[in-house]
């Protein structure tokens, strides 16, 4: 049994980076990465995917509304309603999910992404003693990727 490696976590980051690169022609980069067990840097809209099988826990991609609006603008989407902003963050979570499924295979069963607005900064249940927090930079915006996934088998 081994914990998540840098390579594993990088899969999630690459998915986000790839998404931004593909949609906006401008890649997202990693600002800082650290550990947290509470006070997660949650933004306005969060996409969450839960994992099971050999792993447990969840992954959160949380972005501020300004970033998502800018993204919709770049995508030439005039409707910037809350619902569309949630869809946007959900789409990113979905992309992460697709890449992860491809990488982890049947060892990691991934749920359908959930889209949540204004998720509290403390989680009800945490799979890892310390979850990874990776600050993703795109343009001058900062989004959070929170990886609270633990390998159990």
């Amino acid at each position: 049994m081994s914990d998540l490696s840098e390579k594993d976590i990088e899969i999630f980051i690459e998915a986000i980076g790839g998404y931004f690169k593909q949609i906006t022609k401008e890649a997202a980069s990693v600002g800082v990465a650290y550990l947290a067990k509470n006070a997660f840097p949650m933004n306005d809209y969060t996409g969450m995917i839960k994992v099971s099988a050999d792993y447990e826990g969840a992954l959160y991609f949380s972005a501020p509304s300004a970033m998502l609006r800018h993204l919709l603008t770049v995508m030439k989407e005039p409707n910037q309603s809350d619902e569309n902003l949630l869809d946007a963050v959900g789409e990113i979570a979905n992309t992460i999910s697709g890449n992860a499924r491809k990488y982890f295979g049947e060892n990691m069963v991934i749920s359908i992404p959930e889209k949540i607005a204004h998720l509290p900064e403390n989680l009800d249940h945490q799979a890892r003693p310390y979850a990874y927090v990776i600050i993703i930079k795109w343009k001058h915006y900062s989004a959070s990727l929170i990886v609270d996934i633990s390998r159990i088998r």
């Binding site: 914990d3 840098e6 976590i9 990693v30 990465a33 550990l35 890892r128 003693p129 990874y132 990776i134």
Partner: peptide, 20 residues
């Protein structure tokens, strides 16, 4: 790069887990 930035909390996590 991203991997290098990420490597620090990953190593930190390993040490914290050992201490835990």
């Amino acid at each position: 790069d991203a991997q290098e930035i990420l490597s620090l909390p990953v190593m930190l996590s390993g040490m914290l887990e050992q201490i835990r």
